[in-house]
Design a protein around this nucleic acid. Structure first.
Lengths: 219, 219, 219, 219
DNA sequence: GATGAATGAGAATTCATTCAT
DNA sequence: CATGAATGAATTCTCATTCAT
């Protein structure tokens, strides 16, 4: 089944050459559709992102899409999942040269990586808001919904870990992580909708300011 | 020009009795439509809020609506404007019995009033997100957009004033107001989309926590 | 509301000239659509009878149809209802010159009228089979279903009355009416599907034969 | 020519061992598909019986089906053919313990067997109506159509024989057989569509009543 | 023989908006 | 002012069938 490409690496373990080739092809085509979907979504936004348009850009007839996805929402879910993967990578790689540095520096690096990812990729935020709207977005199976939730949480783990590392108790670390997340989200909203201009403020500067205050609270 | 009734008070300044009567009638009918729109929007959400449904509830035919609004978005804008009025009222009345209290208490009361308004009225948040998405939402004239922006800012003024009152410089007060706003928005997003459950946190508690830390920074 | 034209005669009782004109126009347009639907249904059968095709033949866009009918099934229901009206008329008028005749002659005249109606109008049979398929055809409200059932029954009443007139007890008359109905339906099926050719028989002759035997049983 | 497997016994007469094996295999696979089709058809009805679903249940890909049938209708034809076989079997076996009984009892037993078969297997009736609709159903070759007609006729032969046995002339026996067939079909229609409820009658009781009257006419 | 990707036509609805009346 | 009929474009999704592999 082409439709469940998630862990194809394992599935391919003992595949025949032919099956392997087909799976690979399939994934390439799935990726093609996802690329088209992303481009549509980013250019035309939610409203313009119709199956027709996605199919057209992918060079497919509308019906063909259903060989790779069960419905429109699943495409978005796949897009979001992939976006969260990139986010996770961004946060995981935040330490970079600073890997040897002290915990406070690492905390800041990771939080900033999170912030910068969404600051630099506004469309990824839209994606998240679209699908994270409501407890269980229509069209998504509970499994898919759960998976996306898990991915989101995994993304924030490196920040939480560092807070614990800095001496916070588990409970406090979770609360603080949530607060950091919320603060970032709020600022990013203001930033991307340009409402922040009303206050003549800069989102990134404000987020750094928040981290400054945080650093003072956690010695 | 029945369609731009916003500042009708000024327009009416030198109106003839007949024109005045008509304008008044017009506004009453506009209000009727807005009532219908609000009820639709609150009951069925954005998706279900079709012009037809609004017209039906207002006792009008679909076409008649266009005598009062240029398009569907304008109705939403009017709804949002009215929502912002209610928000402003909520914040302005926050002092309540505490009016005689010290500045820190007032700051907290006002910030909490803002937070609570959106916590208790999720639909008002939806409205805001729908129209505040993007620099100049489709279907809205720059004037209308500006007006909504102004209303939003006016809403936060009481908080900013109190920060100045507490000794912050104008610039710092604006920054802090923005930060409070952002933090509230971020938490409210997590709250209404129920994502906050992932972290097993409570939005209001976290917001109060934020205000606690703020109070320590501003003695 | 144009959509419930059923008892428009009563509704029009005290209508203003304008309302009257509009109602009349409306019914004419409804009739236009029904004509188109009938022609589609009769030419292309069930499968080809799409809303699109009906709209095209009626000179309407697909969406316009929905001003007159709530869905596709309702059109068919209206078609069937109208067909049953014609059937009823045929049976009611069966006595004709024979009105003065003896009961046995009248019974035969009525039964034959029923039979002939469906023999001469095969499409009306298709219509009936389509909508009378299953206890409550999808898309039909219970009310509509009930109405059609009632119409069907009313159609057979003149036959039943005559059987009572001939001395049958109520219960026997109902059973016999049902049997006559079933026999007619069975023969008509064989006739219209041309299966009767296999037996080199003539449907009408067989039905008359059935009535002959019946006459002998009921002296 | 795998696709016209109907009289494979003759075709195999002088087949090479290899061809024989292949033909046998083929028929087994055809049967597999038919089993799947039957299960789909009985579970989901005509509407839900898509080629895809049939293929899935048969463990085939959609395309593979076309190696065994030229189109969807042909599958239904095969299903109907098989249904008629079962019907024939039911009628042929009707005599049962009554085989030694008098002709009137046998006539009744056979007619009732016919009736009961369709009363107990509504889906077999649907199948028949689907394909016996119109002189030469779409998608069916004249040959196939002829074959199904023959099968249907063969089914009624035991009844006709018994009528002759009871003294009816050939012509009368055919007419009476047709009438019995029609009466059964009409009642079964009323029964399966539940219309018979309108008259508060029982289909089987009415059919027995018909046979009672018939018995009196044929001493 | 079998696959399954792809087509292309088609399905019923919905809706904001326009405009003659 | 108000009507409501009409448009026309759009929506997602389904399916029998074909065909390169």
């Amino acid at each position: 089944m082409a439709k469940s490409s998630q862990d194809s690496s394992k599935e391919n373990a003992h595949a025949t050459p032919r099956a392997l080739r087909e799976t690979t092809l399939n994934e390439a085509r799935r990726a093609l559709i996802l690329d088209a979907a992303r481009s549509v979504f980013f250019e035309l936004g939610l409203e313009g992102a119709s199956l027709r348009e996605i199919a057209k850009r992918a060079g497919y007839s509308p019906g063909a899409i259903y060989n790779y996805f069960n419905n429109r929402e699943e495409i978005y879910a796949a897009l979001l999942s992939e976006s969260l993967e990139r986010l996770k990578e961004a946060v995981d790689n935040a330490d970079g040269d600073a890997a040897e540095q002290a915990a406070p520096a690492l905390l800041r690096a990771r939080a900033m990586a999170f912030f910068r990812f969404y600051q630099d990729n506004p469309q990824d935020m839209d994606l998240g808001f679209y699908l994270f709207n409501g407890a269980q977005p229509r069209g998504l199976t509970p499994q898919l919904n759960q998976q996306l939730n898990d991915q989101l949480q995994a993304t924030l783990l490196p920040i939480q870990e560092m807070l614990i590392n800095l001496g916070l108790k588990e409970a406090d670390a979770v609360a603080e992580t949530t607060a950091i997340f919320a603060h970032a989200v709020g600022l990013l909203m203001l930033h991307h909708t340009k409402r922040i201009r009303l206050f003549k403020q800069d989102a990134q500067a404000l987020f750094e300011r928040y981290l400054d205050f945080l650093a003072r609270r956690i010695p």
